[in-house]
Design a protein around this nucleic acid. Structure first.
Lengths: 174, 174
DNA sequence: TATTTTGTTTAGTAATTACTAAACAAAATA
DNA sequence: TATTTTGTTTAGTAATTACTAAACAAAATA
C-alpha cells in the first residue's frame, strides 16, 4: 500500500512543528520552515497560506524571524511583485547564524546581568564570610558562561561547520 | 554607598530567572536554582518558599524537574523529616545530565518521526522526480540530526567536560 | 488512635503567547 | 487619480502555560 507524497509531507511538517515547539519557538514556525524545505521552488506568502493553513499576518511575522535567523531566504522575481521564500538547506550555516543572532538577544542581556553583579560586588567589597561565598559562586557561573561564549564564538568564526569539523571534534573528545 | 547582600542576591536571582525563561523553562525554575545556588547550606521547601515567594506546590513540582535534570540535589538529615535541596555546582556535569535527559524526551520522539518518514518512503518507493527530491531533503535533515546526536553522545560519555576539554575543542576549531 | 509535620496532587485562575480577522500602507497598474 | 495586488500592523481572541490555594497523603510523634 503506497503512502501518498502529500501524506508524507504532512507527517514531516508535523514532526518539525513539534521540534520547533520543543525549542521554544511557535509550532507555526516549524511548519512554515518544513513546507519551504520540502518545496522544489520558492513559495509566495499566499502559497504558504495554502500549505500551512495559517494567516497571512502570522506568516508575515514569523517568516521575518526565520529570515533573521538565516533559516529562510527571501527573493523576488523580475516583473512580479510577490516575495518568494525558500529554506536554507545548509543547517550548519543556519546554526552559525542562530548563534550570531543570539549575541544581541534578551539572553545576552541576562548573561550580562551576572557580570554586572560581579562588578557591583567588586566595587563595594565587604570582607565577611557570606559575601566571599556569594562572590565565589557568582564568579564560577561567570567563568562557565565565558567558556560557553568562547565556544560559540569559535563556531561562528568557522568557514563551515561541515561533517569534517564534527569528526575532528569527536576525535578530540574520544 | 554599599549595596546590601540581599540586594545583590535579588538581582542575581532575577538574572537567572530571565535566562531560564529564555531557554523555555518557567522563570520560577531559574529563581529556585539561583536561591539554592547562592545558599551556603541546603534549604528546605519552606525556606525556598520564603526566599522566592512561590507556593509550596509550585516549588514541589518545579524542583522535581530540576532534580531530574541534575541541576539540584535532594538530601535528608537524620532525625529530620524535611527534604533539603542544594544546587549542582559543576555546570559541565549538569549539561551532561540535561543532554542525557533529552534522549528520552518529547524532542527525541519528534526527531525519530523524521527517521520514520524516511523508512516509510523507502518501503513504498515511487520513482518520480518530486518523490526523489523530497527523499533527498528528508535524508539531509536526518544526516544533520545524526551528526548532532553523535556530538551529544560524545559529550555525555566524557568523564568531565572541564576547561581542558573546552580548550582542546577550541584549538581544533582554530 | 489522634495530631502534627512534611511533600504532592488537583481544580481553578492569572499571565503569557500564538494566532486570526480586518484595517492599513505601499507600490504597481489601469 | 482610482484600482489592484501585495505585505504589515493592530486590536482582540483562543490556546497554552505558570502558578495559587486548598485538599490530600504519608509518615512521624504524642
Amino acid at each position: 500500500m503506497t503512502q501518498s507524497l502529500a501524506r508524507i509531507k504532512r507527517d514531516f511538517t508535523q514532526g518539525l512543528s513539534q521540534i520547533s515547539r520543543f525549542w521554544g519557538f511557535p509550532k507555526g514556525m516549524g511548519a512554515i520552515f518544513a513546507v519551504l524545505y520540502l518545496s522544489p521552488t520558492a513559495l509566495s506568502l499566499d502559497e504558504i497560506v495554502q500549505e500551512t493553513g495559517l494567516t497571512k499576518g502570522a506568516i508575515s511575522t514569523e517568516i521575518r524571524t526565520l529570515a533573521r535567523m538565516g533559516l529562510v531566504h527571501r527573493s523576488t522575481k523580475l516583473g512580479d511583485r510577490k516575495d518568494y521564500y525558500s529554506a536554507e538547506t545548509d543547517f550548519y550555516a543556519a546554526i552559525r547564524s542562530i548563534l550570531q543572532e543570539r549575541q544581541n538577544s534578551e539572553f545576552d542581556r541576562a548573561v550580562r546581568s551576572v557580570k554586572d553583579t560581579l562588578t557591583v560586588m567588586d566595587e563595594n567589597w565587604v570582607d565577611d564570610e557570606e559575601w566571599n561565598f556569594v562572590w565565589q559562586k557568582v564568579q564560577a557561573l561567570q567563568d562557565f558562561f565565558d567558556a560557553i561564549d568562547s565556544l560559540t564564538k569559535a563556531v561562528i568564526k568557522l568557514e563551515s561547520l561541515g561533517l569534517s569539523n564534527v569528526t575532528k571534534i569527536l576525535s578530540v573528545l574520544k
